[in-house]
């Protein structure tokens, strides 16, 4: 009588062990295969340096298509004003990766419109000051924030010469899978890094600009559109005096 029971128990244990092992290992195997399948399995190299040229002569006054496109691409339009927050304060607290700025030359009175965003410096002050290294520069020149190690000290925001960074002031209800975000971390334009890692060749703001004022590409490739355009027009860096060697350049400022 005892023999069959033992055999049953053995069979049962074997079955349980098998199921348990499958439960633990299978997702890992699955994830592994998913990870391997994506083109992002190779490390980013400095063979490329991503950058942009903004042709301010083409940037239209009053147009904010690049801003809307960025908001949509990076889920910034999903952010809602917290209940009870004042409209005025919320406008100053909501994240914004790209913005329109209009300038007047103090001497000549000439007016220029341009979009401002993270300038993707070669020597970014935000990376220098970050205590944990969460603010970092990828080998391909993209400056971004590691949301796992950002402690929310905002020192990078103090250091950025371009007011390019945003702090997430509220609980996040909705977000895109490509741009996860959470309360208490800092973020900024990352040149649509999700597109870079998935083989895309453009940024959302570039796609949205019907005036062709934004040219994105590899600054190291002499044949890229951005390099060709930069070779053709005189360009400037914003706050060139800081010698940060920005990846975003402007014409006619």
């Amino acid at each position: 009588m005892s023999q069959p029971t033992n055999q049953q128990r053995r069979a049962f244990l074997a079955e349980v062990t098998g199921v348990a092992a499958a439960t633990v290992v299978a997702p890992g195997v699955l994830l592994q295969s998913v990870a391997n399948a994506a083109p992002r399995d190779t490390a980013v190299t400095d063979d490329v340096r991503y950058g942009m040229l903004i042709d301010t002569t083409k940037c239209a006054d009053g147009c904010s298509d690049c801003v809307s496109a960025c908001d949509k691409e990076n889920g910034l339009d999903l952010m809602e004003k917290p209940e009870g927050a004042s409209d005025e304060l919320w406008e100053m607290q909501r994240p914004r990766w790209i913005r329109q700025v209009k300038l007047r030359n103090n001497l000549t009175g000439r007016v220029t419109s341009l979009p401002m965003m993270c300038q993707h410096c070669e020597k970014p002050p935000c990376v220098d000051v970050c205590p944990t290294g969460a603010s970092f520069r990828r080998a391909d020149g993209i400056v971004m924030v590691d949301r796992h190690t950002c402690i929310g000290c905002r020192y990078c925001m103090m250091a950025c010469p371009y007011n390019a960074r945003s702090f997430i002031h509220e609980n996040v209800q909705l977000k895109t899978t490509a741009t996860p975000r959470g309360k208490g971390c800092v973020e900024s334009c990352n040149l649509c890094v999700q597109r870079r890692d998935n083989g895309g060749t453009t940024t959302a703001c570039q796609d949205a600009c019907k005036h062709g004022a934004i040219v994105f590409g590899d600054l190291k490739d002499p044949n890229s559109a951005v390099s060709q355009a930069m070779a053709k027009y005189p360009t400037v860096q914003i706050r060139a005096d800081l010698q940060l060697n920005t990846g975003v350049r402007y014409t006619d400022v």
């Binding site: 000051v129 944990t132 950002c150």
Partner: peptide, 25 residues
């Protein structure tokens, strides 16, 4: 006042020594 005070352990274990904040810790 940190955005992520619960990550203090990160600040104590992950350093960027170019940051005066890291030195200050």
């Amino acid at each position: 006042d940190l955005g992520q005070p619960s990550r203090l352990i990160v600040a104590m274990t992950t350093y960027n020594f170019k940051s005066i904040f890291a030195w200050n810790i």
